[in-house]
Design a protein around this nucleic acid. Sequence first.
DNA 1: AATGAATGAGCATTCATTCAT
DNA 2: AATGAATGAATGCTCATTCAT
Lengths: 189, 189, 189, 189
Amino acid sequence: MASNKYEEIVQAAVELFEKKGYHATSVQDIADAVGLQKGSLYHYISGKEDLLLGLAQRAITEFNQRMERILSSERSAQDKMKEALSMHLELITHDVQLSTVLLRESVALGERPQQVVKEATDLYLDLWTRLLAEGIEAGEFRPGNPRMTALAILGACNWVFRWYQEDGTLRSQAIADIYADLFFDGIKK
Amino acid sequence: MASNKYEEIVQAAVELFEKKGYHATSVQDIADAVGLQKGSLYHYISGKEDLLLGLAQRAITEFNQRMERILSSERSAQDKMKEALSMHLELITHDVQLSTVLLRESVALGERPQQVVKEATDLYLDLWTRLLAEGIEAGEFRPGNPRMTALAILGACNWVFRWYQEDGTLRSQAIADIYADLFFDGIKK
Amino acid sequence: MASNKYEEIVQAAVELFEKKGYHATSVQDIADAVGLQKGSLYHYISGKEDLLLGLAQRAITEFNQRMERILSSERSAQDKMKEALSMHLELITHDVQLSTVLLRESVALGERPQQVVKEATDLYLDLWTRLLAEGIEAGEFRPGNPRMTALAILGACNWVFRWYQEDGTLRSQAIADIYADLFFDGIKK
Amino acid sequence: MASNKYEEIVQAAVELFEKKGYHATSVQDIADAVGLQKGSLYHYISGKEDLLLGLAQRAITEFNQRMERILSSERSAQDKMKEALSMHLELITHDVQLSTVLLRESVALGERPQQVVKEATDLYLDLWTRLLAEGIEAGEFRPGNPRMTALAILGACNWVFRWYQEDGTLRSQAIADIYADLFFDGIKK
DNA sequence: AATGAATGAGCATTCATTCAT
DNA sequence: AATGAATGAATGCTCATTCAT
C-alpha cells in the first residue's frame, strides 16, 4: 500500500500535467504543490518520467480491467457494447485530468516507456475489437471490419477529453446514450 | 512568394515536431536539418513558437477552407457529409505529420497563440455542426444533437493520426467509406 | 542573516560590475569568481538584473538613512552640512566600487527597477534640498535656489567616484574639508 | 567633408545611445533609424565601438577647443571662469544627448579607446586647473588646491546631464549664473 | 524522511560582423 | 553603394537529478 505522501504527489502531478503539460511542469512545481523540497521528492519517486509513466499505466490499467470484466460477462454483444461505452465515458469524465494526461501527455515519454503504454492501449483496442467481432459473429452487428470500427468508436470516445468540462451540463451517461444511438443506428433517417 | 529556405525550415520543423515532439525538438535540430547555423535560422523565423503556430494555422486553415467550400456547394446533406469525411481523412492522411503536429503539439503553445488555434478549430466544429443541422432540417438525418454528433465524428476522424501509417494498407478513401457506413447506418443489423 | 555565499556573490558582483561594467560582466564571470557553476548561482539570486538592483538599493539606502539621521539631529544647518559632506564622501570613498556601481551602472536596469532606484535617489536629493532650505530660513545661508544648490553640491560629491582611487593620497575627510570650504565661502578672495 | 549619410548615422547613434544606452542599442536599431540594412552600415562605419568612440571624441574635442580659446583670451581669471562655466553648461545643455553619451556611455568602450577619451578629458581638467591656478596667482581667488576645486566644479557641471531636460524651464545661462554665484561666494551669509 | 546546495548539460535567442552578389 | 544571407560565439536562464548532512 503506497504511502499517503506518494498519493499526494501523484495527484499533484496529474493536476499539474493536465493544467500546464508535462514539459511545462517542473519538478519544483510538483514539490511546491505538496509542500516538499525538490530533493525530498526523490524519496518517493524515481524521476519525473516515471511519475508520468506510473500515471499513464494506472489510467490505462483501469480501462483494461473494466473492459475485461465486461467482455467476460454473460450478455448480448449489444448490451456489452452499451456497457463498454458507459464505462469508457464514465472513466474519461470522472477523472478528466488523468485521462487527459494519459491521452495527451504520453508522447512526452521516452521510447521504452512509451512502448509500454502503447502495448497496454493496444490491448484495450484488441478488447474492443473482440467485442465487435463477437457481435458480428453472433449476428447482432452487420459484417464489417471490427478493428476499424473499434478505432472509430474509441477515437470518438477519447476525443471527449478535449471538450468535456467537469462543470459541463452533460453527464457521462448522457453522452454514452447519444454515442450509443449514433454507433448503433447511425444518423440516417 | 515565400523563400525556398523558409519552406525548407517549415518542412523540417513539421518532420521533427512530429517525430520527437515540439519540446524535444531543439532549434539546433531544425538548423541541422536544413544545414544552417542556429543563429541563421532567425533570418527566417521569429522564434520556435511562431514556427509551431504558423504550422498549426496553415493546417487548420486548409481544413476550414475545404469545409466551407463543401458546405456552400449544392448537394444533399448526405452527399456533403460523404464529401466532408473524404476531405477530412484525405487531409489527415495526406500529410499525417502536419496533422499530428496540429492535433498533438498545439498544447505546447502559450496561452495567446493557443487561443488563436482554438478559435480556428472551433470554427471547424461549427461548420460540421451546421452540416448536420442542415441534414436534420432537410429530413435526411434523424433528429438529434448535431453538435454532439459532430464532436463524435470529428473525434473518430481526428484519431486517425494516432494509428495511420503512411505506408499502411488503407487508402484514406477506404477509411472514409467505412466511417461513412458506420456513421450513416450504425453497426446494428 | 543572509548566507555567507550570498554575500560572497554580492561582493563579487560589485567588484566585477565596477571593473568591467554590468553588461560586460557575464553571469559566468560571477560564478567563476565565487567558485560555483553558473546554474548554482540561481540558488542565491533570481537573476543578473536583480543582483544589480539589490546592490543599488543597498547603496542608496545607506545614503538615505545616514542623511535622515543627520537632518533630525539638533545642530546648526552649517554643522549639519559639514556632517553631510563628510558622510557622503566617506560613503563614496569607503566603498568606491559600490558607489561606482550605483552611480554608473544603474542605467543598465530596466524601466521599472530603474524607477525604483530613481525614487530613492530623488528622496536623497530632497533631503539635501531640505537641509539647504533650513539653513536659508535660519539665516545661516544666503537666499537662493536650494534645489539647484543641492544639485551642484551632490554633483560635485558624486563625481568623486570618477577620480578617487582607494590608494589615493587624499582621505575622504580631507576632500570633505576642501569641498566644505568651497561651498561655504567660494573661491573669491 | 563627411557624407550626409554618415552624419545621419552618427546622429541616429547619439539619439539611440542616449535613449537606450550603448549596449541596449543594436546595430540593427541604428540601421533601422537611417533606413539602411545592417550590412550597409559598414560602408560608413568600421564598427559599433568606433561609432561610440567617434562620438565621444567629437564631444570632448569641442569642450577642449572652447576652453583653450577662453584660456588664451585677455581677461581676468574671474571673467574667464564665468565664461568657462557658461560655455560648459551651454555645451552640455545644447546637446544633452551627446553629452550624456560622452559622460555616461564611454565606459562601454574597450581599454584602448577608453584611454583615448580619458586623455582628452584629463586635458580638459588640466585646462580648468590652470585657470584656477592663474586666478590664485593673480590674487583673484583664495589660495587652495586648484585641481580639487576644478574637480568639484566640473563634477557639479557635468552632473547636469542627469537632471537637465531640454524642455526644462532653466536656460543654461541661468544655471551658469547660479553656479557662478555658488562657486565664487559660497552659500554662507 | 527531509533538506538544500550543487551540478552540468541544455536551450532559445541576440548580435556584431563578414562577404558574395 | 547596398543588400541580406550567413556566421559563430556568447548570454542569461532552467531544470532534473544527486548527495552529504
